[in-house]
Write a protein that binds this DNA or RNA. Structure first.
Lengths: 262, 262
DNA sequence: CCAGGTCCATACCTTCAGGGTATCGCGGAC
DNA sequence: GTCCGCGATACCCTGAAGGTATGGACCTGG
């Protein structure tokens, strides 16, 4: 009748480990219990979720589809748990460099007694914090995966090249992307990437290269030994306000209004 | 640890009724059980959700906030079930003009957690939807091909002639079929027929002629510029409830009961 | 002012799902 | 053939969810 979130959580664990024994260990339950629960889930759903064999466990197509629904459901449930009991609080997330104070102040002033918090996000968790309820709304830099989210664009801002003050491009009024050919770009992209803007800039200062950042970010993190130069022909960075699509609270609606006007 | 969706569903029921007894009734459980479950939920969440008094129950602010999260969570959970293919869903088909709401409401109220859907059919697909499983039962207008179907007659209703308000027959108390001789009948029958009642009526309004419809259909689609007149000597339209003969589910049996009583 | 009604809580019982341990059966690998 | 990894089965125990009966607080009409 009702879906049992415990079983769903067990299912996700097995789907991730593709091994009942290790999944059971991760869940801190005995393996036979896990086997039984998964079987019970399959019975309830009248669908086979795994192909079991003594040499491995794999997801069936139905299992794969369930997994896609199960994860967001679990995060939504934990978001609910996180939010409940927390005193009347409204939390605004923001990416580094974005100035949220005016909007936050305005919301707070209109609702005395409401605790308005802010949470600085990173490139990696800017979407996650919305889904798991750590923030009610968040200022994000597009593009982000928009599944389960709603958003309104707020403004665009140009990107700049950040280089050492001694760099050949330092002092220029502006550059074109072609001027950067041959420069090593310091990016957050995957494997050996940098987790924060500070680290990126540190790297540029130490070892040269060029970091490409939205203007406000570059200004926010400006340092003596680095300068930034506008790049004329690169697509601007879009800043948007995003929130979970299943949440429709008056406060969120009001903040969206405020953010668009500020 | 895990949120219990059953308790959440109970919570929403109480929040909607603001009365433990009636909520329990709607959920088909005993009132003390509901009280205990809500209390357990409050303990688990460490938050008081309701203010109880012998003269009424109200949501606390925390309860109100939980309600905002609880509804979408339940929706997402049932969406998951539906997509996995287990959706506990019962779908009732109906021909235009027939009012199914009371019966549907009654079934839904007797089975909390059951998703009861309705599907409007047309003259062409009213049987097809039964066979292909789009509906579990359907209100049909006889005659229909009954192969593979079982049905119970529900009621008869007179047919009326729908004519422009300016027509010579408009305003009459009733007419006989013979009065219609010479009139062009606008019918849905095959090739160049009209696919919907709306189209038929549009045609009558534009180009004259007469449409013969069951009374309820004529009422449902009534327009300012058209009037309907009962036809005394034409066989009445029979409305029946039909279902696939190879399907014998308790829900179908129950709905048949309900439909006959309503 | 008391009788009855409404509403939620408490007490107590029964059932069953979920957790645990011990052990089996099946394949693949050495 | 033997061993090992992996999931399934068998059996027990506990606790949570369901039920009925009843209590206690509060309102309301006579």
């Amino acid at each position: 009748m009702d879906l049992d979130l415990r079983k769903v959580r067990y299912f996700v664990a097995v789907a991730e480990h593709l091994n009942f024994g290790r999944a059971a260990e991760a869940l801190h339950i005995a393996q036979p219990v896990l086997s039984r629960q998964i079987r019970a889930l399959e019975t309830e759903l009248k669908v086979q979720l795994f192909d079991r064999s003594s040499k491995g466990t794999t997801l069936t197509p139905a299992g794969l589809r369930l997994l896609e629904d199960a994860r967001p459901l679990l995060t939504q449930a934990s978001a609910l748990l996180r939010r409940v009991g927390v005193a009347d609080t409204f939390t605004v997330g923001f990416m580094p460099g974005l100035i949220v104070t005016p909007a936050v102040r305005l919301l707070a002033s209109r609702h005395p007694g409401l605790q308005v918090d802010v949470l600085r996000t990173t490139w990696e968790d800017q979407v996650e914090v919305i889904h798991d309820g750590r923030v009610d709304v968040s200022y994000v830099r597009l593009p982000v995966p928009l599944d389960g989210l709603r958003h309104v664009p707020l403004f665009d801002e140009p990107r700049v090249a950040v280089v050492p003050a001694t760099h050949r491009l330092a002092g220029k009024e502006s550059v074109l992307e072609v001027d950067l050919t041959g420069e090593r770009r310091v990016q957050h992209t995957d494997p050996p990437g940098f987790r924060s803007v500070e680290e990126k800039l540190e790297h540029v200062a130490m070892h040269g290269g060029v970091a490409i950042l939205p203007l406000s970010t570059a200004i926010f993190y400006s340092r003596e030994d680095l300068v930034h130069v506008p790049i004329e022909d690169i697509a601007p960075n879009e800043v948007a306000l995003a929130w979970a699509e299943h949440r429709h609270t008056p406060l969120i609606a009001e903040f969206i209004e405020i953010a668009q006007q500020v």
